[in-house]
């Protein structure tokens, strides 16, 4: 099993697991975690396929794309977490506040 195949398959598994988690997990935090994992899966597929030829340095384009993707993912995660925080805080305000 070449590293490319190994990591690309792992990417596929992570993508499916993350996507299924998004739909099947009830808790919102876990949904947010799932999205992050599915994203990592796609990134793994991207970068694994970039180094199919062992004697040539890996293709830099997918690496750059994945870097962009990571930054986009952290932005989306931060927004999702801020929304989540607002949501969990809200009901506690009324009885105690």
């Amino acid at each position: 099993m070449t590293p490319t195949l190994n990591y690309a398959l792992t990417g596929v598994v992570l993508f499916s697991v993350g996507l299924s988690g998004l739909f099947f997990c009830a808790h919102l935090l876990r949904k947010i975690l799932s999205v992050n994992m599915a994203g990592s899966g796609v990134f793994l597929v991207f970068v694994a396929l970039a180094r199919r030829q062992p004697d040539v340095p890996p293709d830099p384009v997918p690496q750059a794309l994945v870097l962009t993707g990571i930054v986009v993912a952290v932005s989306a995660t931060a927004v999702a977490l801020a929304l989540f925080r607002r949501l969990t805080h809200e009901p506690a305000e009324e009885p105690h506040g």
Partner: peptide, 8 residues
């Protein structure tokens, strides 16, 4: 969450 799933 729906949009993120879509873009992924």
């Amino acid at each position: 969450l729906a949009a993120l799933a879509g873009s992924l």
